[in-house]
């Protein structure tokens, strides 16, 4: 049985249909890339899975995690799923951390909430987690405020926070887009390694084919709130059946040519 099963997921907001019948399957420990241009509904799919859609959004369809229906679950029970079973890494590491809270405490938050760890135990575990994502001097980093760390370091902290409770599913929403190209590779490698070690299923959202090729084999192409194509990355790359996928590919080629030139 698959870990995450999404059937006919539909989201309407203010009379506009933003997601139109998304189907998606993800097995335990599997990886899936979600690709599409901005506004195609990639991030919205992730938020819908988490039950964190904006106020006034109408949701239809079904989102099941381990057979449990998540849509329509009350906020109390849903907040137990969030952070514990499903976690997320954000695009902008700088804005995803509270500027007034020490980094260590932010990593410790989910541990205290879901694992019931004491302040001290959670703080100690937070330092271990920060160490595991390869930050030099983890004790010092745990005491730092977000503005004292670099973007790449903050994204590592974001990954540490997301994996704190060993979730079954990790949603990564363009986790490398905001980073320097040199740092991107490191962060991707880290994500790749940790997800592997923890056996976490990964839903990787991106619009960058090159980045996606590094972390996932299977890909779902979204466009206009619909699934346009699904298959292994190589199949989709070799024989794109949809116009939109072709445009995406052409765009990727164009940019890679200009980079080489």
């Amino acid at each position: 049985m698959s870990l995450l099963t999404v059937r006919g997921l539909t989201v309407r907001l203010g009379g506009k249909t933003l997601l139109d019948g998304i189907d998606l399957d993800l097995g335990a420990g599997e990886r899936l890339g979600l690709i599409g241009e901005s506004g195609s509904g990639k991030s919205l799919t992730a938020l819908a899975v988490l039950g964190l859609l904006p106020d006034g959004a109408e949701v239809g369809g079904s989102v099941r995690l381990d057979g449990t229906e998540l849509l329509g679950l009350d906020d109390r029970r849903m907040s137990r799923v969030r952070g514990e079973r499903i976690a997320m890494v954000f695009q902008e590491p700088r804005t995803a951390l509270n500027p007034l809270m020490r980094v260590g405490r932010q990593v410790a938050e989910p541990l205290r909430r879901h694992r019931g760890l004491s302040t001290r135990a959670a703080a100690a575990r937070a330092v271990e987690l920060i160490d595991s994502v390869g930050l030099p001097d983890p004790e010092r980093a745990a005491r730092a405020y977000p503005h004292q760390l670099s973007g790449g370091q903050l994204q590592r902290v974001g990954i540490a926070t997301a994996l704190a409770c060993d979730p079954a599913l990790l949603l990564a929403d363009e986790p490398t887009t905001a980073l320097d190209v040199t740092v991107q590779a490191d962060v991707l490698a880290l994500l790749d390694r940790l997800v592997d070690e923890h056996g976490t299923a990964l839903l990787f959202i991106t619009h960058d084919l090159a980045v996606l090729a590094r972390v996932a084999r299977r890909v779902l192409v979204l466009g206009g709130g619909r699934v346009l194509e699904e298959g292994t990355l190589t199949d989709v790359l070799r024989a794109p059946t949809h116009d939109y996928t072709r445009t995406l590919l052409a765009a990727a080629r164009a940019t890679s040519f200009t980079r080489e030139a």
């Binding site: 964190l52 799923v81 952070g83 954000f90």
Partner: peptide, 14 residues
């Protein structure tokens, strides 16, 4: 509306 509040909610905070 900030990401860190969203991140906190993703982390399960009430």
């Amino acid at each position: 509306g900030t990401d860190y509040v969203l991140a906190a909610r993703v982390g399960g905070a009430g």
